[in-house]
Design a protein around this nucleic acid. Structure first.
Lengths: 123, 123
DNA sequence: AATTAAACTTGCAAAATGCAAGTTTAATTT
DNA sequence: AAATTAAACTTGCATTTTGCAAGTTTAATT
């Protein structure tokens, strides 16, 4: 993980939107945050079993990076890690909410399912 | 552009958060939306000149994809396109706002700059 | 008529991703 | 106590995406 130093300092601009996308602007990071925030998941295998099907190397990479940027931490032993959101990570909750509301608004999934999502997220 | 059909139908899951990330979960799409929504930019070259420095092929690819998924459209001639957000694109405003607020909260940029960002975004 | 410039387009190297399989070692089972 | 299970990685490799530099096309301007 030698290039993590770069990733931590590499900012495309000072724009707060750009900076946030530098942290979580990929297809997987916010899904891990979602799992932690709404689905009660805390471990590698739980994230791995999410319906979107993240692969093991990507999951590992994202857990390392999210930890390094300070969005998540973990407790427990190396073989039984329990991940949790940091204070900074919890600050992403409004982002998850607005993203979910957009997704719900433009989803074609059935009403009952979407209603359940809203309930789970208190939306 | 043969694989756009796939991209339009390819959903990792029904989760609204996952679906939204399928649309704009990359480092560049939301910056184009930002340019349209807050910086008054409407053309290829204006997007190209944004401070983050998107490259021409990626910009073109994103403009095509954002158009195909219905987040933006354009008017004008092929050589003088004017892009604008669709209704669906405008629905991303709350996302941009929450993303910006998170970025501002965790930014180390100087206060005056951040205050200006907030003003520009009416935050 | 010549020049400019906006909007792409292409080629290629580097990086990120996806998939399958293997490894390590704590915890559990027998 | 020995064997088995399983959680958390790790590796290899093929595919895809990205970044950078350069080139192309044609409407608009000079």
């Amino acid at each position: 993980m030698k290039k993590q130093v770069q990733i931590l300092t590499e900012k495309r601009s000072e724009c707060p939107i750009s900076c946030t996308m530098d942290l979580v602007g990929d297809k997987w990071s916010l899904l891990i945050i979602r799992d932690l925030l709404y689905l009660g998941k805390t471990s590698y295998n739980e994230f791995l079993n999410s319906r979107e099907g993240i692969s093991t190397n990507i999951l590992n990479d994202r857990l390392v990076k999210l930890t390094e940027v300070g969005l998540i931490t973990f407790t427990g032993t190396a073989k039984r890690k329990k991940y949790e959101l940091t204070k900074m990570g919890h600050d992403l909750k409004p982002v998850l909410e607005s993203v979910a509301l957009f997704g719900i608004k433009h989803s074609t999934a059935d009403k009952a399912f979407l209603q359940n999502v809203k309930k789970k997220m208190s939306l």
